[in-house]
Amino acid sequence: MTPTYAIEADNLIKKFPSRQQPDKTGAPKKKFSLPNPFKRTPPTLFTAVDGVSLQIHPGEIFGLLGPNGAGKSTTIRMLCTLLEPTSGVARVNGYDTVRNANLVRQNLGTVLAGERSIYWKLTGRENLEYFAALYHIPPAIARKRIDELLERMEITARANELVERYSTGMRQRIAISRALLARPPILLLDEPTLGLDPQAARNLRELILSLKTEGHTILLTTHYMEEADQLSDRIGIIDQGKIIALDTPAVLKNRINQQDVLRLEVAGWKPEIGEKIQSMPEVGSLVTRYMGSESLWELTLHTPNSRALLPKLIEQVNFNGTHVANLNVVKPSLEDVFIQLTGKALRD
């Protein structure tokens, strides 16, 4: 019987033990003190995932969007059986990730972030032959499947070269082929385009869309909002271990349609100007980002009324050597949704 949900998580919590540094306890610091190597601070628990619940339908691309450290990878690791939840339940294709871990592994193809999930001293083809055996695919089917994947990933001509001679994009394609070997109904892709050049990233996004048309369910984590927007049927925005919003990209962006989004480039930026702008009653939220040259900063402002705000804003900024270099009223993006929900940028 086909389960209702391809992936289901119910109140998943993951806590890790961590040792707090002595100087973060709030105790007054002595002027001259040597660290005591024998003193161990008591372990505390750090909550990486805090009550995540979600249901992903068969055939859906679900994007988990959030900044680094938000809990995306920890969630993926719990779903793919590498990590046991502290509490809560997760099911993949109807199988419990703790009690039926091996059945979950048979039904999942996972690509974790980073390019070292394959053997650099084996060829591309050897890697796939090795992993096909680990995934218990019968040899005759495995041979056919490997040829098919190498062809699809356009690696056939270099399939017999050692992976150490491949580009980052080619290694990622072998890693994705590894995940696809068993033709699993469900794919978990953790930051799949991280570190790829724009062309390789575009090709990979096209591949992900074509996998959806073949019927695969895909859970994708990313901190690239355009990627999540382009690929996902639904998006869960995750921050500090909690899912703070979950819906289709269009509905999420509609949430802030009552707001205007202003994007300014300011030259000669000084932090005190930010404080002044933030204190203006028309400003809903403000996020600043250094743009890398001559004190050029990008400001993203949410306001219910940009017409009323603009004159006052320009007056505040064009002062004492600081000036507006560029100004746009832009369409809200998923990043703006994130800013509205958390008061900070995705890349913070």
Partner: peptide, 30 residues
């Protein structure tokens, strides 16, 4: 027909004793 043309609802992964032994042999080979 290619394997990709088959609907992706059933995995090709099937655990048997023979499959486990093949996996072990591949670990030795690696």
């Amino acid at each position: 027909p290619t394997l990709s043309a088959v609907p992706a609802s059933q995995s090709l992964s099937h655990t048997t004793l023979g499959a486990e032994l093949r996996a072990f042999r591949m670990v030795v080979w690696r």
